[in-house]
């Protein structure tokens, strides 16, 4: 394919840019490529116009490969659109259709311009189709990457926020565990807990596990480690909130919390902790 031919596409598109833009927008609307409530018409028009001119610029520099330097502007622009789409909650097909919906108006335009050169028309259509496909794939990949970033960020946030260590009494800490325990989380919990023990000089820790869905041998192992580390710091651990089903599973699995004090509820554990700390709860008689 010679350069003369290449510039023809760019030229054709450039000459009828306005018309193409109108047709494309119409096409997008027809295909419901974009949520109308998520993006305003003006914004969509502006974006599509920008994209079209970048496309023309790309076509002028080379039609073979969209991964070249010449297309980088176009790629970056698409990336930002796709990532935005991922953040705003557009569906994957909406993101992909955005680029693909450009095909029909461009094909129609080419057909109109090259109506008496069928061979050239076929070539051009093939070239444009290839280009748009690769751009579509690119935008889809970026969309996916955007989604993965969101998931990763949420995971990090969850790890950061879901392991509070609270002081509920002088010398008594509690760690409510919610969700599945894995080695990474256990590590974070252990670090937080041990640091808090040092900071508050606590002597008793209540580990509340009613929010842990299952306790298998692995989770038990993590709990043992935490308890052992806390014990090295001179702190006694009480595990509370073991549900009946969990107790049964643990027995069936042969997991035993032999050396660890276990209680059914946080209240029981707290009562035990008070006793260990030589504290008494006294109910005062109401004065008449």
């Amino acid at each position: 394919m010679g350069t003369g031919k290449n510039s023809k596409i760019a030229e054709i598109i450039n000459n009828s840019k306005e018309e193409l833009l109108e047709n494309w927008l119409k096409e997008q609307k027809k295909a419901k490529a974009q949520h109308t409530e998520l993006i305003s018409e003006g914004e969509l028009r502006h974006r599509s116009e920008e994209l079209l001119s970048l496309f023309v610029r790309g076509c002028l520099s080379g039609l073979e490969d969209t991964s070249t330097e010449a297309w980088s502007e176009m790629r970056d622009f698409l990336s930002s659109i796709s990532r935005n789409n991922a953040r705003q909650g557009f569906s994957p097909s909406e993101t992909a259709t955005y680029i693909f919906s450009l095909k029909q108006p461009v094909f129609a335009l080419l057909r109109q311009e090259l109506s008496n050169e069928p061979d050239a028309l076929l070539d051009e259509i093939w070239t444009v189709s290839k280009l748009l496909d690769s751009l579509g794939l690119h935008s889809f990949e970026e969309y996916q990457r955007g989604r993965e970033e969101i998931i990763e960020r949420q995971r990090q946030e969850m790890i950061g926020h879901s392991n509070p260590v609270m002081k509920i009494w002088e010398g008594i800490l509690t760690v409510p565990l919610i969700g599945t325990l894995d080695s990474e989380r256990t590590q974070v919990i252990m670090e937080n807990l041990l640091q808090k023990i040092v900071d508050t000089e606590s002597s008793i820790v209540i580990i509340e596990i009613s929010g842990v869905p299952t306790v298998d041998t692995e989770v038990a192992q993590y709990l043992f480690k935490t308890v052992a580390a806390a014990k090295l710091m001179g702190t006694e651990c009480i595990i509370s909130g073991i549900r009946p089903q969990i107790a049964q599973t643990m027995v069936q699995l042969g997991v035993a919390f032999d050396d660890i004090m276990t209680k059914t509820t946080l209240a029981d554990a707290l009562q035990y902790a008070f006793k260990q700390s030589n504290l008494d709860i006294v109910q005062h008689q109401k004065r008449a």
Binding site: Q195, I197, E201, A229, L232, M233, G234, T235
Partner: peptide, 28 residues
């Protein structure tokens, strides 16, 4: 015993059997 040391001990599987532990000299 420092927090990081406690974690290392547990990860290494070292058991301080028969040894009592406390947070600081006061508590000890």
């Amino acid at each position: 015993i420092r927090p990081s040391v406690a974690i290392t001990i547990v990860e290494l599987g070292v058991t301080l059997e028969g040894v009592h532990t406390a947070l600081n000299v006061d508590k000890g």
